[in-house]
């Protein structure tokens, strides 16, 4: 029986890597968002840094999602 361990390892590594990266980036985005909301409630105005962080992170996640859809739909290849 021939087993393609390289392919299996590749799948495992890519899956774990992409998942952890995407979730961490999203969590950072949520953190930025929470900071913006906290600042708004404290009446100290907005939190520009938090807002920028949230925007960047959510854009990053959107890019990953777009790449995933690109991989699924064969017409894009």
């Amino acid at each position: 029986m021939h087993l393609d361990w390289t392919a299996l390892g590749e799948v495992a590594a890519v899956s774990v890597g992409v998942t952890v990266a995407a979730v961490v980036v999203f969590a950072l985005g949520v953190l930025g968002l929470a900071r913006v909301e906290a600042a708004r409630d404290d009446a100290t105005g907005g939190d520009a840094l938090g807002f920028a962080q949230a925007t960047l992170c959510f854009l990053g996640c959107a890019a990953v999602v777009a790449y995933g859809i690109y991989l699924i739909v064969p017409q894009f290849h």
């Binding site: 952890v20 961490v24 999203f26 969590a27 949520v30 953190l31 929470a34």
Partner: peptide, 12 residues
């Protein structure tokens, strides 16, 4: 991913 997500957002 879950562990890191909770870790990162723990203080928010």
């Amino acid at each position: 991913a879950t562990y890191l997500a909770y870790r990162i957002t723990a203080r928010a």
